[in-house]
Design a protein around this nucleic acid. Structure first.
Lengths: 118, 118, 118, 118
DNA sequence: GTGGTCTAGACCACC
DNA sequence: GTGGTCTAGACCACA
């Protein structure tokens, strides 16, 4: 796997796992790869994967069973989508509108672009 | 001034100066604060301000007269707006549309929000 | 059964068995569940139960008859209570008093709480 | 410094720093030792100190200024004491009373012990 | 087999 | 100088 050099690898692993779960590639209560396996697959040190898993645990996306490994938390997929949506509507969108105003771009221009690209 | 600890301070100073100029707070060929003065005002090491000014010079937003200080480049304000607009239309907007799609948010919802906030 | 993920499972099984015996749920010389049965009931690997039983044997709480299983040692209940009491008076209580002092909590506050909760 | 081998070193460093701050050995907005310095002093790898500092940051006990180091958060001392007190009254104390009941120890015995030790 | 911790040493961006 | 990240390798307790 190729990583973006401007962002910490372990954070990119967090994103990777998050999207796997949001996409239902990994299902609730399913075991996810061990730190060693994922480390080998991504050609990354297991410690780096561990760091990502710790963060995912804090975010209530995965949980740990002693000696067995990490598992997808039930409802994680739903919660991920929900919190992303919240972030989009409450943070990204206001910023977006503000930028539009600063640059003097009308909502109609946006709608035009939207239909053109689509 | 309060800085966001997640972003390099000198980049935040670049943003600050850029927006001052874009807003016409600082006019073409007007002298901007010395690195010492701005450093003192922002409670930041002058080296850090210097680094911001160097970047702003590269971006053709300010220029230097040896022994006199830094000055706003003519047309800087216009160029800033132009490049921001380009960034917005060519980069931010596609990303924005992609996020909408991923989160299953329609253009109508966006329009609603726009009028509601306004 | 739900286990606390911060403590080794086999130690939690030790606690479980100990309290069963202290409570006279399991009587002297009575056979306790086999490692397989208890493992199945607790949804835990039998090896893990075995490890708990080994520790309980060392602590003179249960004994083994080869081919028959594990049995509650006579006087185990009494000894458990006795050693718990010793632990409480000689270790827990001094720690408790020290914490009170550090947090500046008086003995009267403790007494108040005691009667309030009761 | 001697560490207790049963508890992770970085957690013991968290405790150490926490108590320094609670004791007002390190005051609000004062710089605390760099990860390298404290690592050298404790004869521990700087990474291990870093891990402790990360946790302390999460707990709102210290904060970071880019390139300058870690600093004691204002009100950290008060908050530490407050949360310890809460833990004691809401968690430790009920457990303590329950143990008393199980072991058939009266509140009067506790009071006696208290005055005897004092 | 699993995670969890730690070391030694490296490199980087930033102040 | 500061933190922040990463690697390679080790050792441990636990299941």
């Amino acid at each position: 796997m190729k990583f973006d050099n401007h962002k910490a690898i372990f954070l990119q692993i967090v994103d990777l796992v998050t999207s796997k779960i949001a996409n239902n590639d990994w299902l609730p209560d399913e075991k996810i790869p061990s730190v060693r396996d994922l480390g080998a697959e991504l050609e990354v040190n297991p410690n780096t994967v561990m760091r990502a898993y710790e963060l995912l645990q804090q975010k209530d996306i995965i949980y740990n069973k002693r000696g067995l490994g990490f598992f997808v938390k039930p409802m994680a997929a739903e919660n991920i989508v929900k919190s992303k949506k919240k972030q989009f509507l409450e943070v990204d969108l206001p910023v977006f509108f503000k930028t539009m105003k600063v640059l003097n771009i009308s909502i109609d221009e946006i709608i035009d672009q939207y239909h053109k690209i689509k």
